[in-house]
């Protein structure tokens, strides 16, 4: 299911949580939603899952406003950290409830996942560790098989091997059962190879929405004699700078023309890659809020 936001703002009494955000998430892809804590990721996802309404602007899922539209929202699954699960009941009861509520829920798959993640169906949620609770949330997200699945920092508390297992499951299941995913996280390095598009929020504003491949190609570092490097970078957005004696390293976010690339090589300027994680840090470190 595709998602469209147009000029969406959410105002809380003391803060503007989202500021005229417009974006497009197309159907059948895995979208990454990145941002520092408090950037507005959770607020944005709850709008799409009809958990709240925007102060202004429009939210559309498959062209329709999801607010109080049950036919639509039963096909949207938002998994928040520790949210939407019954604390005092065994996990299997929560799964049973979801089975009746969610037309697409695959109980057998959920049971398989519980077993493979080493969780007992009879365990009560409030007896589990934070990581185990997150795992249950992740299992719910996978097994609900909702056409639109929103995972909000679902990995919190999971240890590294569990996260990796979760990503593996997600990829395998997505290959078999394509659907639309939006995954929010600040663990960008782990998410990078999985997502097809990258959306970055900063202090409630949309900083960037792009194909992951384009973002990867757009970031680059130039390292070499300070004067040459500075000249080459002219007119391009410089997002980081470091000097080491006469050598300067600039981190750029933009395309370098083919002729400039050639000139850079000829002038002994080294051209390097910028991992998405570093780009993200550069782009979001100066938080205007």
């Amino acid at each position: 299911m595709n998602v469209t936001l147009e000029d969406v703002s959410v105002r809380f009494p003391d803060t503007l949580a989202l500021d005229t955000v417009s974006l497009d998430w197309s159907e059948g892809r895995i979208h990454g939603l990145l941002g520092r804590n408090g950037a507005g990721k959770s607020t944005l996802l709850s709008l799409i899952a009809a958990g709240r309404r925007p102060t202004s602007g429009t939210v559309r899922v498959e062209g329709q406003d999801p607010w109080e539209r049950g036919m639509l929202t039963e096909r949207i699954c938002l998994v928040r950290e520790g949210g939407d699960l019954i604390d005092e009941e065994p996990i299997s009861d929560t799964l049973g409830m979801l089975e009746t509520l969610r037309p697409t829920f695959d109980r057998a798959y959920a049971d398989d996942l519980l077993e493979s993640f080493g969780l007992r169906p009879k365990a009560k949620l409030n007896t589990l560790s934070r990581g185990q609770r997150s795992t249950v949330g992740a299992i719910v997200g996978l097994a609900t098989r909702a056409p639109l699945t929103l995972l909000d920092e679902v990995h919190l508390g999971m240890d590294a091997p569990t996260r990796q297992r979760f990503y593996d499951e997600l990829i395998a299941d997505y290959a078999e059962n394509p659907r639309t995913y939006v995954i929010s996280s600040h663990l960008i390095a782990e998410l990078e190879p999985i997502v097809e598009t990258v959306t970055i929020l900063r202090a409630g504003s949309l900083l960037l929405q792009a194909e992951a491949d384009d973002v990867r190609t757009r970031g680059l570092t130039l390292t070499g004699p300070a004067a040459t490097v500075t000249e080459l970078a002219q007119g391009l957005p410089v997002i980081g700078s470091r000097d080491l004696g006469p050598t300067r390293q600039l981190t750029l976010f933009g395309e370098l023309a083919a002729t400039d690339l050639e000139r850079a090589r000829a002038a002994d300027v080294e051209i390097g890659a910028v991992p998405l994680q570093d780009l993200f840090i550069h782009l979001t470190e100066e938080d205007p809020r």
């Binding site: 593996d168 990829i171 395998a172 078999e176």
Partner: peptide, 15 residues
């Protein structure tokens, strides 16, 4: 297959 490739190298199947 794309699925095998995606799960082996942990990348998006579309990629």
């Amino acid at each position: 297959s794309t699925t095998q490739y995606a799960t082996t190298y942990r990348i998006n199947p579309a990629t």
